[in-house]
């Protein structure tokens, strides 16, 4: 469930599941980010390699992953790769982001959302509430069924 539920106006995100101050800087392209050593926010296009950012994680506070179409699933892998590498800053899904994608995006590590078209907050709450269990461990820390069955409490 949502730790916090912002209704808009927080940076560019309509939804934000973090308590820290949003990054005030605009997100720049990966190429620009490499050159601007004081930049802290980057925007990753769907065809770009998230691993290019891994050497620069310590100065990142916001990564915006762009979804040109909700059917383009590359951003889900990008998000997990960043979280798996220990990135703890804000991870925002932007672009064609729809109600029924939010839950999987949360599971892959996204914690803020800047959809092109504003989402119905009640529908998002419902969509996040249907499932009590997950089969797979991911970076979201939910204990998978496989662990629950065998007496463990975390994945």
């Amino acid at each position: 469930m949502a730790e916090s539920f912002a209704t808009g106006g927080v940076g560019d995100a309509q939804l934000r599941y973090r308590d820290d101050e949003p990054c005030a800087q605009p997100a720049v392209t990966v190429e620009a980010f490499k050159g601007q050593t004081n930049a802290t926010a980057v925007r990753l296009e769907s065809g770009e390699d998230a691993r290019e950012l891994l050497a620069m994680l310590d100065r990142l506070t916001l990564v915006v992953v762009h979804f040109p179409a909700f059917t383009d699933g590359r951003g889900y892998s990008a998000a997990r790769i960043l979280r798996e590498a220990g990135y703890a800053g804000e991870l925002r899904a932007a672009g064609d982001v729809l109600v029924d994608q939010i839950r999987y995006m949360r599971r892959c590590g996204f914690d803020s959302f800047a959809p092109d078209a504003p989402l119905d907050a009640a529908a998002v709450e419902r969509a996040l509430g249907f499932y009590d269990h997950v089969y797979q461990p991911t970076v979201d820390g939910q204990t998978p069924v496989w662990t629950l069955r065998h007496g463990g409490d975390h994945g």
Partner: peptide, 14 residues
């Protein structure tokens, strides 16, 4: 089957 059901990373494959 269990692993692939509701897999969050692989629901929008090419």
């Amino acid at each position: 089957r269990q692993w692939s059901s509701f897999h969050p990373e692989f629901a929008h494959l090419p």
